[in-house]
Amino acid sequence: MSVSQATFRSALLDAEEAVPEGLLDGSDTPAGARFSVYRNNVVVSLTEALRTAFPLIYKLLGAQTFDRLAAIYVRQQPPSSPLMMHYGQELPKFLQSFQPLSHIGYLPDCARLDIAMRRSYHAKDAAPINPSVFQTDPEELMSLRLALAPATIVLRSDWPLHDIWRLNFEPDAPKPRATAQDVLITRPEFDPAPHALQPGGADWLQHLQNGMAFGSAHEATITAAPSFDLSAALSQALQTGALTEFKTKDS
């Protein structure tokens, strides 16, 4: 008559399974539909967590479709940690092979954007770089090592990802262009914001992140993306608070 937590859990996520024996109402009769309170709590609370975590996906799909997707996802991929702020990491991969929504090719990248925005929101605080570090002689400048703030995230996409985000969250945003867009997410204070990167911009930030000096990062970037505009990239990085403390070659 004892109900193990394995039995309880199994019946919890599978509504077809019988309610475990040994669960009663207050007058010693089988609990029956009372068990559904727990079934419902689990699915509703996890669906709610996904709604909060994936605002772009929610906007794109609408409440009904999103909740149907969530009802399947939460059963296949329940959280692996009590930190609901991290829930849904597998959703992009899940969407890639989810047949009913496979006609919306950009959905997985949109889910990645939602995850990146959330990661940025909870990332460690960091003071933005002081722009005066760039007022130095050219040789010194080329040897500067810049660091991305912990809340700065670069996302590469084959879709017009930034345009898609704008269309869903900014009034009077233009229709997405038929172009690939890498996205820079930064968090000046508390609210992460996505920005479109120019061609080569993601490479450049990646090189900086990997510890390459300012000069070498530029050279490596223009080799792959000859149109890369360093001054535009630097001014975007400074204006959006993408950079934090820097290190010189010797430090």
């Binding site: 004892s2 859990r9 727990y38 329940p78």
Partner: peptide, 17 residues
């Protein structure tokens, strides 16, 4: 209450005997 089973966190306060 319990909420974790194996590697899963079920996000509800579940009862115990």
């Amino acid at each position: 209450a319990w909420s974790t089973h194996g590697a899963e966190f079920l996000n509800d306060l579940l009862p115990l005997p």
